[in-house]
Write a protein that binds this DNA or RNA. Structure first.
Lengths: 293, 293
DNA sequence: TAATAGACATCGTTTTTACAGATAGTCAGT
DNA sequence: ACTGACTATCTGTAAAAACGATGTCTATTA
């Protein structure tokens, strides 16, 4: 069994079709057919059921599939490990929550890039759940997400600590009045999956502020804009508000410490190879965590 | 990078020589040279330093080596997993301590073989330490060794419990006399690495029986023969003595419970794929552990 | 029911890659 | 300088992979 065989197999399994896999692999269908056939002969067991609308993986294929993926990931790691001569360079795909990317990362990235110009940083923002998935499937080398993270395949290092505060327009009425009047409260939140959103909803319901109307946004600036425009209230890291230009025109109201404090951790796959670029990046983060926190 | 590339690389690294690796891989030297060269080109980093007496791995090679081995092991696992159609068959290399192999295994193996004739059992005996190494490097699928086993990559299942007893010739003088006379005691033991041997030496020294002369043997029968011939005393599982033909002509003396009881566990690699043959074998063991213990 | 479209299998040809063998170059020890 | 043990390179051959065209099967559709 060959590495390209495994790649062919994975592609066919993913696509559920030999023809589609051939396209994706930049080759012709007969080729893929042959390779799969050979593979099946060598293994002595069929990997796919053929039918008129494509193929479906057999039980044997199901058993093979996770291995194929793990092996591919390991080989990728191996090449990285071998090429890694100790100088930080090459691509470094990192994920971050929107707020972290907006508030904490800019100074870190600026310094890091100045120090290691050969590292091609690629920051992807998204909610915690999405980021974790991407780290797990190797499409991100690491990510900044909200604690706690408990997954056997991940390791988390605390980096930042945020105080979540309520943000509302200066002219926003006293919150207590909503409760008394049982008026509908509009909360401006990040898209589903964001852990800050969960905090806010939890807090809102603990305060008995239902019913609630939600407005979703993908960026800090978007949310703050809405808040400033008197659309609703939100829950954001204090730093995200104070450091934003619009932040000056919103009112901040603290919530109880126990519900306000949230740690931002940097997660990586436990088994992934941390190359020089990665190690340097983590060192920079640790630096930032100590000084700027 | 190809799987056979990794095999070539591993072989060269192991042999420290391209020529020797070529022999081992059943191919010619030029071939290996070329493959390694291509590999180095593709990786962009040299993997070996060439000198007149062979090659030595570079730092990059050192980093790659563990991956190469892990990937090879994974691929082997993957093929097993794919081929495994639920019927137990194929090779099943198992390790066992000498005493376990002599006393506990025969009935288990007999029954297992009757039930699963297509499994090619291959029992290797050796001391615990050696067996654990072999399980770790994938040359054994599992092994019966003395508890406790604490290794992150291994899982251990208790199977048998043995009572270790002192064995000596019928005419052997009272042990206390040795201590009083400060005479040299001869102990007949398994070769180094056996955990029963450790127990015996520990017990002997705890009793203040030094000085001691050691005689090493590799088999239960050999040890019992010596013991019966009045050469010395030994520490063995009670069952190993009572079930042996020579056992009738030796005297058994119990030692305190706390030092006598030892568990035999079955260890496997945590990450290895347990095929149908393996699962069936473990079921048989569990059976034997329940009924015959 | 016959035509059709989409999907996999098969076959012959071409291109690429791997292999074996022979030869040349390199370095340490004598 | 010679020798022995290695590795690098070159070359023709053999094997394997890729390609493109064609065949076959089946579910869908007119």
């Amino acid at each position: 069994m060959d590495l390209s065989d495994l790649a062919f197999f994975s592609a066919v399994a993913r696509c559920g079709s030999i023809s589609k896999a051939a396209q994706q692999l930049n080759t012709v269908q007969s080729n893929v057919t042959m390779r799969i056939k050979l593979m099946e002969e060598r293994l002595g067991t069929p990997l796919f059921n053929r039918h008129s609308r494509g193929v479906s993986v057999t039980n044997a294929g199901q058993r093979l599939l996770p291995y194929a993926e793990q092996i591919a990931a390991l080989v990728a790691d191996a090449t990285r490990a071998a090429c890694d001569d100790g100088t930080a360079r090459g691509p470094l795909p990192i994920g971050a929550m929107e707020t972290t990317a907006a508030v904490r990362l800019p100074p870190v990235l600026a310094k890091f890039h100045a120090q290691y110009p050969d590292v091609e940083l690629d920051i992807t923002t998204g909610p915690t759940a999405t980021l974790l998935e991407k780290v797990l499937d190797h499409s991100l080398s690491g990510a900044f997400v909200a604690a706690p993270v408990a997954h056997p395949e991940l390791v988390a290092t605390p980096v930042f600590r945020e105080e979540l505060v309520l943000a509302m327009a200066k002219s926003w009425p006293d919150i207590a009045s909503y409760r008394q009047a049982n008026r509908t409260l509009t909360v401006v939140v990040f898209r589903s999956g964001c852990s800050y959103r969960q905090r806010l909803e939890q807090y809102v319901s603990s305060q008995g502020w239902l019913p609630v109307r939600r407005l979703e946004f993908g960026t800090v600036e978007g949310i703050l804009g809405c808040v400033a425009a008197n659309v609703g209230i939100s829950l954001l890291p204090r730093a995200a508000i104070t450091r934003s230009a619009i932040g000056k025109s919103v009112r901040i109201e603290a919530i109880p410490q126990r519900e306000a404090m949230v740690d931002t951790v940097f997660v990586q796959r436990r088994d992934a190879y941390a190359g020089a670029a990665m190690r340097a990046f983590m060192a920079s983060c640790a630096d930032a965590a100590e000084t700027g926190n």
